[in-house]
C-alpha cells in the first residue's frame, strides 16, 4: 500500500483554481521534491493533502486510509512565516509537542518523552541549545528544531514546506543528509523545493506542478529541457486562463 495516493484532486482557493485534476502516487521510502513556479499550487497541494483545506473534488489516501485515521503518523514542517517566533517557548518544549500522542491523559511530559525529545535534538546537533528560547536561535537552528519535533513524533510521512528558505548551505546539507537517512529507514518525505540546480542531487522523485501535474518521476527525466521550457516560458498561460475562467463560471462568477 503506497503511503500517499492522490486521485483526481481539484482545489479552489478563494474561488481561484489552484490544483486541477491531480493524480499521483508516492512510494514508501522515497524523498520527493515538489517543484513549480510561484503560485503553481505547491503549498496548496500540501495543505489539501493534509486536510487543512477542503478540495473541491478528488480523494487523498494515506496508506489506503482517510487522513483522519492516520494523522499521528504524519508530520508537517511549516513555512517560516507560519510560526510566531516571538512566542515564549524553548527548543525542548517544541520538540516535546511531538510526543503528545504518547503522553497520558493530562499530557504531562514523562521521563521517556524527555529522553526521546533530547535524543531528537541531539540527532540534529541542537542538544546544547535545548533550553534556548526559539527566538534566540538562528534560522537554520529554528528549522532543525521543527524537524526534531517530527523525529520525536516518530512520523512515517513528512511534509516540509520550503525548508531551505533563508537557511545557510551547511544546514541545508545536514538536513538533506538526515532526510536521506530517514528515507532509508522507510520514512516517506515530501519537500517543497525551489532550486532547480540542487534538485537532482537531493531527491529520488520530482513532482513538477503547474496547477495540474506536468511531470513526475526521477529528477533527470522530469528536469528535461522540454518540461523546464514548458514551465518557465509560460506556454501554459492560455490554457491556464481558460481553465480558470471555466471554473470561475462554474462557481457562479459574473
Amino acid at each position: 500500500m503506497n503511503p500517499l495516493v492522490v486521485e483526481e484532486l481539484t482545489l479552489h482557493y478563494d474561488k481561484v483554481l489552484s490544483l486541477w485534476n491531480l493524480s499521483l502516487s508516492i512510494e514508501k521510502g522515497s524523498l520527493v521534491g515538489i517543484m513549480g513556479p510561484n503560485g503553481a499550487g505547491k503549498s496548496s497541494f500540501i495543505k489539501a493533502a493534509l486536510g487543512l483545506v477542503k478540495p473541491s473534488s478528488g480523494k487523498v489516501l494515506f496508506w489506503g486510509k482517510d487522513i483522519v485515521k492516520v494523522r499521528k503518523h504524519i508530520a508537517y514542517i511549516p513555512q517560516k512565516e507560519a510560526i510566531d517566533w516571538t512566542f515564549p517557548i524553548t527548543a525542548l518544549e517544541v520538540v516535546l509537542m511531538g510526543r503528545y500522542h504518547k503522553m497520558g491523559f493530562w499530557k504531562r511530559a514523562r521521563k521517556a518523552d524527555r529522553i526521546e525529545a533530547e535524543r531528537a535534538l541531539d540527532q540534529l546537533g541542537l542538544y546544547h541549545l535545548k533550553d534556548r528560547q526559539i527566538a534566540d536561535l538562528s534560522g537554520g537552528q529554528q528549522k532543525r528544531v521543527f524537524i526534531a519535533r517530527a523525529l520525536a513524533q516518530e512520523a512515517e510521512m513528512y511534509f516540509l514546506d520550503e525548508p531551505f528558505q533563508g537557511v545557510d548551505v551547511e544546514t541545508e546539507k545536514t538536513v538533506i543528509k538526515l532526510l536521506k537517512e530517514l528515507t532509508s529507514k522507510g520514512v516517506t518525505i515530501c519537500v517543497v523545493h525551489h532550486d532547480v540546480t540542487t534538485a537532482a542531487a537531493y531527491f529520488d522523485q520530482l513532482i513538477l506542478l503547474h496547477t495540474s501535474l506536468l511531470a513526475m518521476g526521477p529528477p533527470k527525466e522530469v528536469l528535461s529541457s522540454e518540461n523546464i521550457t514548458a514551465l518557465y516560458r509560460n506556454h501554459h498561460d492560455l490554457f491556464e486562463e481558460v481553465k480558470q475562467r471555466f471554473s470561475q463560471k462554474l462557481q457562479g462568477a459574473p
Binding site: 487543512l52 494523522r71 508537517y76 507560519a82 510566531d84 516535546l96 499530557k107 511530559a109
Partner: peptide, 22 residues
Amino acid sequence: YLFYRRLQIHLFDPVYMQVSGI
C-alpha cells in the same frame, strides 16, 4: 495547569494541532 500542554500547542502552533490530529 491541567490543560497546559494542550493550551501551549493551541496558542503556539494551531496548524500542528490540526495536522497531527490533536
